[in-house]
Design a protein around this nucleic acid. Structure first.
Lengths: 224, 224
DNA sequence: CGAATGCCATTTGTATACAATAAGCTGCCC
DNA sequence: GGGCAGCTTATTGTATACAAATGGCATTCG
């Protein structure tokens, strides 16, 4: 993507993720254009893209609004994500290369390190976690699957609440990864899929809890 | 979508589906704009959309080409489709309303009629078939799932070869639908999912055969 | 003769002006 | 006072002109 267009997309996206653009609020192309320092053309491109990714919704008369997801929507997204990631793990089990296995081990070791320090480095954990899942997706070798997963992984709520993840959950995640690695080593797709399903479903419940406390915090802020 | 933009989208899309724009061939925005009788702006919108739907691919320098899918790609799409439609059936089993069940029965009766006539009416069959699946998707009540399925259902190759479906396969499809209806009636999501998986996988093999003969025909045409 | 380089043609990206459409408001009529 | 009509304003859609980037070709140099 070219310069202006990319800038607009990244800007708007991060404004949505950070909550700077509040869920449910209307979006005006011109306003965003000014904020991003570009013209409406690249902004429109970005809005179309973000609409396809369900960050933005449009009403009957083409006006755009920041998407506002309920807990049900979140569960729906996670259900799909669990299914798709399990599928990816299954495919990866029979396709993953030695090199990819090595990389997976590396990132898993790194993310373990990140939470075993006296002061856990959560961003570092999340970064290696992201790489870990990306490698599996690459090993699964299905472009469509990759596109679809992007649609359910990068949720505003998901990213916003990721930091709430407690240490115990992070440790369990690491162990799931360990088990996945063994399943890959044995080329056992069914096992890999099962582990991945549990891995994502646990994440959902962690997120759901974080989300509800998050919502309560926001409510009390509004009330104050 | 507005007039010009919608026209461009539909025009280009049908040109791809019909093969008027050959797989692999380059696409120039200006040429399409003239063909559709609109300016480049709505054409660009359409191209972006079609790119997201994987009808179009872009190279490193942003030039667009009509997507060209191999048999492997087709299988990949069908694998995802089977998984997603099975998921839809499972969800639908516990959510489908009396009214929707009635509609499903109606369309299934109609598509049976379409192939039991002396002269089978395949377009009519396909039309009611489409409705049948759409109702299940609606009953599944997941917008994301609907979007994802659209991405794997409306494939150029799929639509182009649908007509090759032989009568025996159409009859089996009808019976699958019957069984799905019973599963829905019993609210048995697992059963519904299993039937749907088989339903789609059979479709894949029918398509795959049709695709290979289709490819051979095209090759011999090129050779002649 | 082959490879690299610079120029020209082609194509896409961006900005902007204008058109079309929808929302909101004001004032009128019942 | 309530609701509807017509106008005004806000917002999005489309066309077009121009800018930037890319690819291909020809020429030149080793």
């Amino acid at each position: 993507m070219s310069r202006a267009s990319e800038r607009a997309y990244n800007n708007i996206r991060s404004m949505i993720l950070s909550g700077e653009l509040q869920p449910g609020s209307q979006i005006r192309e011109e306003a965003l254009a000014e904020l991003c320092g570009v013209s409406r053309t690249p902004v429109r491109d970005s809005l179309r893209r973000l609409e396809a990714e369900m960050f933005i919704r449009r009403n009957d008369s083409q006006r755009s609004f920041v998407a506002d997801w309920s807990l049900d929507d979140l569960e729906d997204a996670f259900q799909l994500r669990a299914m798709l990631e399990a599928h990816a793990a299954k495919r990866a089990a029979s396709r993953v290369t030695r090199e990819q296995l090595g990389l997976l081990r590396f990132h898993n070791a790194q993310l373990k390190q990140a939470i075993e320090m006296p002061n856990p480095d959560v961003p570092k954990f999340l970064d290696h976690n992201r790489h870990f899942h990306a490698i599996i997706l690459a090993a699964a070798a299905s472009e469509r699957l990759t596109n679809m997963l992007a649609q359910v992984t990068e949720q505003p709520v998901v990213l916003r609440t990721a930091r709430h993840y407690d240490l115990e959950n992070l440790r369990r995640s690491h162990h799931d990864h360990d088990e996945l690695l063994i399943a890959f080593d044995k080329r056992d797709g069914e096992w890999a899929a099962a582990v991945m399903t549990g891995h994502i479903r646990r994440a959902f419940h962690a997120y759901a809890e974080a989300h509800s406390t998050d919502t309560e915090i926001r409510k009390s802020n509004l009330a104050a």
